[in-house]
Design a protein around this nucleic acid. Structure first.
Length: 647
RNA sequence: GCGCCCGUAGCUCAGUCGGAUAGAGCACUAGAUUCCUAAUCUAGGGGUCAGAGGUUCGAAUCCUCUCGGGCGCGCCA
């Protein structure tokens, strides 16, 4: 039955194209039989990869500069025979925790002390003595057990402002490197119902991570794997049909394992309005000979399977497909819109049916066979996964000849790698952690390096209202839809709250806090900083003054207040933050950074007037806050959050 | 039973390729508005980094064990 349906489903998709349904229409636009959004065509070349930006590459001006000085010093040390020439060490440089230790600190002397056979502090002095002169560097000092602290000149900090206001590049962003092609799969929720808050976290995390990786120089393709195949689709079609019968006035006992959401009625209503009562059958025709539904053992599953067979008998293929496609169309359209309103877009919607139809699954099985990782037992085809780090062997093709879900996963993985991606990232819910070993084993069995796939687990979300945990259960259909959360707390707040914690931490989502438009809500705190800056420029207009950026740039040396130095210090960190955030797959780093940047700004705002009489100082300060505005808005955009003009 | 994630201030969490005196928000206390938005700012108290051992110049961070919490272990999808 399944086999037959899949075949017809393939045809049906083309049928739908002629009906001009937006989601299915995407089918025909592309080769490889993939779903691809419009955006894909705008941003990607034929080979399927984004075009590299032309901006020149630059990581962090200040940090790189000091690192370069250290490298020079090390070379001198080697020349002076104080260090073995065999030592290859990239300088260890990190931000200090407080300005009293300068901007940067290096533990190089501590690390090298043993090899140089010198006390750390003495070695530190030797390193300092050999540092090339630099206008950016005010002074150095040896601290504690042998740290070298670097104090930057005001000029060096001010140059950050200059860099940010340059028009030819995005400060802190790195040119995309064609050698780092990444496919990032996230959400991939089964099309059996609307997205819920758990999916929302995966969506917010994945979308932010994609932006961050891109900013850090990776070519990223965002993919959504549409699991539109298999038994769950049968159950979905069945659920719609049963609701349809109810609407026709038939008495229906809804199966325990059916999909119970309100949206099933909506779909049934659509079907009925298009096709009338032509698929109406009475209770006897439906349930005669069907075994009882019960929570016990496998009863519920058997009951559903029998009902599915009955449904396809009574409805015939075309009728059955009408239900299935109405459901898929309705639900996927809903998911797409939901995500779009959430600021989450995909380059690639990948259909499992298409995967199967294109022969990719057979291709993958052949590939596994070729590498000698398959064997037959009890009539089924098994992957020798236990030899590749998984806990047990896995069935690939069942005794009944049908490929397992895992087989599709392997085929999809192979497809990704064959499309030229050298790195595949999966964002899964925490309940999928059993997949890590399995997918890595699969990669190895395909003859690939298991390191090329990376699985990131997003932990669960618990909603809290009035200090009480909001009950959620997918089984009973009582989950909280993402859409309702967005309506309640706004997309901006939801996006921020979902990524403000590390993805491997359970998230307690405080609804009252997210909703509150007060000082305690971190989203508005950051957005308010942006709105305040915009407001300053509006006031400038009202005073009939204009911002002269050139004057400001020439006068940056006037920015010597502690608040100004501190703000510039924060701005200069941005490239490092992007880099760390990308490397650690940690969007929350950006969220925390933006909060601290907003703090610096608010403190500055309270302490000093920007619209002062002196033209030079005024324009210099406007340059500084405009730079701050740019970084706030760039960082917020990376997290999918808007930058309001006023609040 | 086996495996994965986690345990840091009253609460929610940063900090984990080892680094200096362990940080932030909320809550609490006391202040700031003739001036660009008070959705703001300033100051303050609050800690056995779950516990024990190990590795070393140095451990919240790495290793081992114990305790506690969450999740997963189908020829389901």
């Amino acid at each position: 039955m399944l086999q037959a349906r899949v075949k017809v489903a393939g045809i049906c998709c083309s049928d739908l194209v002629s009906l001009n349904r937006p989601w299915h229409a995407k089918f025909q636009q592309v080769t490889f039989r993939h779903f691809v959004s419009q955006r894909f065509h705008q941003r990607f070349t034929i080979a399927g990869f984004p075009r590299a930006r032309t901006a020149r590459q630059r990581v962090s001006i200040l940090k790189e500069h000091i690192e370069e000085l250290l490298v020079q010093s090390l070379l001198h040390l080697k020349r002076d025979k104080l260090l073995s020439t065999e030592i290859e060490l990239s300088p260890q440089l990190e931000r200090t925790r407080s300005p009293e230790h300068g901007e940067f600190a290096s533990n190089l002397a501590l690390v090298l002390a043993k090899q140089a056979n010198k006390p750390p502090r003495e070695l530190a002095q030797a390193i300092i003595d050999r540092l090339p002169r630099s206008r950016q560097l005010k002074r150095t000092e040896i601290a504690g057990p042998g740290f070298i602290n670097f104090f930057m000149n005001q000029l060096a900090l001010a140059s950050t402002v200059k860099e940010i206001l340059r028009k030819d590049q995005l400060f802190g962003h790195v040119t995309q490197d064609p050698d780092h092609r990444v496919t990032l799969e996230f959400v991939s929720a089964n099309p059996t119902g609307p997205l819920h808050v758990g999916h929302g976290r995966g969506a917010a995390y994945g979308a932010s991570l994609a932006n961050i990786l891109q900013a850090a120089g990776h070519m990223v393709q965002r993919e959504y794997y549409v699991n539109d195949n298999g038994r769950q689709m049968d159950i979905l079609a069945l659920s719609v049909w049963l609701r349809y019968l109810e609407l026709c006035g038939e008495k229906v006992s809804f199966p325990i394992n059916g999909y119970r959401g309100e949206y099933i009625y909506d779909i049934a209503r659509t079907v009925r309005s298009e096709h009338g009562d032509k698929w109406r059958y009475n209770e006897l025709e439906m349930y005669e000979g069907i075994s009882a539904d019960s929570e016990k053992g496998n009863d519920a599953q058997i009951h559903v399977d029998e009902l599915i067979d009955r449904a396809s008998e009574l409805l015939g293929h075309s009728g059955y497909l009408a239900y299935l496609n109405a459901a898929l169309d309705h639900i996927l359209t809903d998911i797409r819109e939901d995500l779009e309103e959430f600021g989450v877009e995909f380059d690639h919607w990948f259909s499992e049916i298409e995967l199967e139809d294109s022969g990719a699954i057979q291709h993958a099985i052949d590939c596994l066979e070729e590498h000698g990782h398959l064997y037959i037992k009890d009539g089924a085809t098994w992957l020798r996964a236990s030899e590749l780090g998984d806990e047990k062997d896995r069935v690939i093709v069942r005794e009944n000849g049908k490929a397992t879900y895992f087989a599709s996963d392997i085929a999809y993985l192979l497809n990704k790698l064959e499309r030229g991606f050298d790195h595949a990232i999966y964002v899964f819910g925490a309940d999928h952690h059993g997949y890590i070993a399995r997918l890595k084993a699969a990669a190895q069995a395909l003859g690939k390096d298991p390191e090329c796939i990376e699985i990131l687990l997003v932990q669960f979300v618990a909603l809290f209202r009035d200090g009480e945990k909001v009950a959620m259960s997918t089984r009973s259909g009582k989950f909280i839809p993402l859409r309702r959360l967005r309506e309640e707390v706004s997309s901006d707040a939801a996006r921020y709250f979902f990524v403000m914690r590390s993805h491997d931490q359970h998230l307690d989502f405080n609804l009252d806090l997210a909703k509150s438009k007060t000082n305690e809500n971190p989203v508005y705190y950051i957005q308010y900083a942006h709105a305040r800056i915009r407001s300053v420029f509006r006031n400038l207009d009202q005073l009939d003054l204009t911002h002269n950026s050139a004057i400001g740039e020439a006068a940056l040396e006037l920015l010597t207040e502690e608040h100004e130095l501190s703000l510039m210090r924060a701005l200069s960190r941005y490239p490092e933050v992007i880099e760390i955030s990308a490397r650690q797959r940690a969007p929350h780093t950006i969220a925390h950074y933006l909060h601290s940047l907003a703090t610096e700004f608010h403190a500055y705002y309270s302490a000093h007037q920007f619209l002062v009489d002196g033209e030079n100082l005024r324009n210099a300060r406007l340059n500084l806050i405009l730079a701050t505005q740019n970084i706030l808005s760039d960082g917020l955009a990376m997290l999918g959050i808007s930058s309001p003009e006023e609040m």
